[in-house]
Simulated scan of single mutants.
Amino acid sequence: MSIFKNLVELVSVLFDRDKANIQMIVFQEDVYPHVDIYERKLVLPSNMITQTLQADMIRILMHEFGHMLTWNETDFVKSDNCAADRYHSIPFEECYNDDSYMTLFYEAFWKDYDEQWLQTGYGTIEERLAFYEDHKDSFVSTYATVHPYEDIAETFSHFMLTPYNDNPQTVPERKVNFFYQFPELVAHRAFVLKELKDRKDEMLSFY
């Protein structure tokens, strides 16, 4: 039980509740780690906890916090009609505000992609692989190509956990540096890194 207790304590420290406001952590069997932003719930796999999370625990938590931070009900309105310069998630009927992280990320990195890549993903594995092969130099990971929501969450985890690059040359590097324009995120990054450093001895099982 100690690993579950430690996980709950770690989430309570690393997740900024003013921004993400997680209401509950649920352990379930046979699930991938994910968040439900509408119920403000973080779901972690109870039966795969050591295999799935031991090596990548911090990165996974930062990815899911990235979802809570950027896929946030305070940043969008429900609508099936949206201005062209805003990010619009058609399947969820979510139209993002002008100053939301999602709209600003979309404007900087996604607006030139065809509409089909902005929404439900790609119809087949072959199409996904083809999209990745055509654009892999623009993403921090393979998984980031799945959807703009995954791209921003994956990139956010890199922002939180990799050193600052003061001379970005590639699209992935510019994506990571995107978050440095927000003082509140820079401050939270500094807080998280200090907490991780201070807690390293007690979290060795997560590395």
Score class of each variant (00 low, 15 high):
residue 1 M to C: 14
residue 2 S to Y: 07
residue 3 I to G: 02
residue 3 I to E: 03
residue 4 F to T: 13
residue 8 V to P: 08
residue 9 E to S: 15
residue 10 L to M: 10
residue 17 R to C: 09
residue 22 I to Y: 12
residue 23 Q to W: 02
residue 24 M to T: 14
residue 25 I to E: 02
residue 29 E to C: 09
residue 33 P to L: 00
residue 33 P to I: 00
residue 39 E to L: 09
residue 46 S to F: 01
residue 48 M to H: 13
residue 48 M to K: 14
residue 48 M to I: 02
residue 53 L to I: 10
residue 54 Q to E: 13
residue 58 I to H: 07
residue 61 L to K: 09
residue 61 L to F: 05
residue 63 H to V: 01
residue 66 G to V: 07
residue 73 E to I: 09
residue 77 V to I: 14
residue 77 V to C: 12
residue 78 K to M: 08
residue 80 D to S: 15
residue 86 R to C: 12
residue 88 H to V: 11
residue 92 F to Y: 08
residue 96 Y to P: 07
residue 101 Y to T: 02
residue 102 M to R: 01
residue 103 T to H: 11
residue 104 L to A: 13
residue 110 W to R: 15
residue 110 W to S: 06
residue 114 D to M: 09
residue 116 Q to P: 08
residue 118 L to N: 13
residue 120 T to V: 07
residue 120 T to I: 06
residue 121 G to Q: 11
residue 122 Y to S: 15
residue 125 I to P: 11
residue 127 E to W: 00
residue 128 R to I: 05
residue 130 A to E: 09
residue 132 Y to P: 04
residue 136 K to M: 05
residue 137 D to E: 14
residue 144 A to I: 10
residue 146 V to R: 14
residue 147 H to N: 04
residue 148 P to D: 08
residue 152 I to P: 01
residue 157 S to C: 01
residue 164 Y to W: 07
residue 164 Y to P: 10
residue 168 P to V: 04
residue 168 P to I: 01
residue 171 V to W: 06
residue 173 E to Y: 02
residue 177 N to I: 00
residue 178 F to D: 15
residue 181 Q to K: 14
residue 183 P to Q: 12
residue 186 V to L: 11
residue 187 A to I: 03
residue 190 A to L: 00
residue 193 L to M: 06
residue 196 L to R: 05
residue 197 K to L: 08
residue 201 D to Q: 05
residue 202 E to Q: 15
residue 202 E to L: 11
residue 203 M to R: 14
residue 207 Y to E: 07
